[in-house]
């Protein structure tokens, strides 16, 4: 793998068993959620992934991190100690690499432990991976809390005491506290209102510059992807149907699904009515 790439994904597929309902469930086939996906991500760049609900975006990024087992393909990652194929490693071998790859989740409600205080949630990765530096943990947590725009008195509260958007910022703080090199954001700003979204996107951009972070940014808001990413993949039914520089995808979409997607972006002007292309008149393959 070339050293300017942080990640090279080749022919990655994920299949789920289809089970027949009954007392004893029996496998009757399989469903291909991710179908032969290949792409590369340059170090320090931002790759956007957009696509239909259910097109396999979450499954793809989880398979990259081996949170789901891929059925075939390879994921070359340029770690601090050289390139490795993540698909070939045992879970034990993956452990030390986990500090270098972090994920910010789609659902802030499900991803935070309701019984832990915010201070402990954000500190947890530090406790697991850097227990020897425990004297600095508190200071690091406070600094990170401030960076994501939460007040210091949040430290002693539980997740349920925060709104959806505030919880998402807690998740971002936890993911960034280990200074990872690859950060995968799965709809990380989707639940945020525009002003907080702008703060978080600006923050992610600042951190990227400071720490030479590389992002994979899954989102269904095309305006956000256009703003934040350099290149993007468009997914439809498990496959990548189009990829390239974001500007090019926006100005001259090639695949019919991309055209449908672009036509469905609502305007801020109440007098410009939303009129997406007709799905049935398109060749969606």
């Amino acid at each position: 793998m070339t050293t300017r790439n942080l990640l090279e994904v080749t022919n990655l597929s994920v299949k789920f068993p289809l089970l027949k309902r009954g007392l004893l469930s029996k496998q009757v086939g399989e469903f291909t959620a991710v179908d032969q996906v290949s792409f590369e991500v340059q170090r320090g760049s931002v790759l956007g992934i957009v696509g239909e609900s259910g097109s396999g975006k979450t499954t793809l990024v989880r398979a990259i991190l081996r949170a789901i087992e891929p059925s075939s393909g390879s994921v070359l990652f340029q770690g601090n100690d050289g390139a490795v194929d993540l698909c070939q490693l045992t879970h034990k071998q993956l452990m030390p690499l986990r500090t270098q790859m972090q994920m910010i989740f789609q659902d802030p409600f499900a991803s935070l432990n309701p019984r832990m205080k915010v201070a402990d949630i954000i500190a947890e990765p530090l406790v697991i991976h850097h227990p020897e530096q425990h004297l600095q943990h508190r200071q690091q947590v406070i600094k990170m809390l401030e960076r994501v725009g939460l007040e210091a008195d949040s430290l002693h509260r539980f997740p349920h005491a925060f709104s959806g958007g505030q919880r998402q910022r807690i998740g971002i703080a936890r993911a960034l506290i280990l200074n990872p090199s690859l950060v995968i954001c799965d709809e990380a700003v989707s639940a945020l209102d525009v002003s907080v979204q702008a703060q978080v996107l600006n923050l992610l951009a600042d951190l990227q510059e400071e720490m030479n972070l590389t992002y994979i940014f899954v989102a269904h808001d095309l305006n956000v992807v256009h703003h934040f990413c350099e290149r993007a993949l468009v997914m439809y039914r498990g496959a990548v149907v189009e990829s390239g520089p974001v500007d090019q995808i926006f100005t001259s979409p090639q695949h019919d699904y991309t055209k449908l997607l672009l036509s469905a972006i609502p305007s801020l002007d109440p007098d410009i009515k939303l009129a997406p292309l007709d799905r049935n008149s398109l060749d969606l393959g």
């Binding site: 525009v194 002003s195 979204q197 702008a198 305006n223 801020l268």
Partner: peptide, 20 residues
């Protein structure tokens, strides 16, 4: 400010976040 913070179709270097 809320309206200005909407990421537009134009690429812009920074969004106008509203300061808390």
């Amino acid at each position: 400010g809320l309206i200005a913070a909407v990421p537009g179709m134009k690429r812009q270097p920074r969004l106008d976040a509203i300061s808390n």
